[in-house]
Amino acid sequence: MSSVRGYLSGFLISGLLMLAATYMAATHAFPPFGLLMVITVCAAIATIAQTYFLLHIDTAEHNIWNTVSLVLFIPLFVLTIGLTWWMFSQLYLHTMPAMAGMH
């Protein structure tokens, strides 16, 4: 895994995805929401590739606890960001009616 080929694949996949995302963003290739979706997908794939090829997160025995802890952390990241965003979008909606929805 920690071979030259692994590192090169990680670099190429994430680099090309970022190139594509940058190109689409710089040229405004899609309407904003569609663009957001596309670059989110790019980011997700790049992250997964890097996690696999660079951080060596897999189910091999010497790595298992790293993998377990990562898997346990991810929901917390999602909760932290997701609930906060939701809570404040609601707060803006209620307390700043003139401002909300202008994201």
Partner: peptide, 22 residues
């Protein structure tokens, strides 16, 4: 070091690029 690259993907896409397009 590799984690910094992963975090950079998020920073780059969701702060720089998303900030740029919105």
């Amino acid at each position: 070091w590799h984690l910094q690259a992963i975090i950079w993907v998020f920073v780059y896409v969701f702060v720089y690029l998303w900030g740029y397009i919105s």
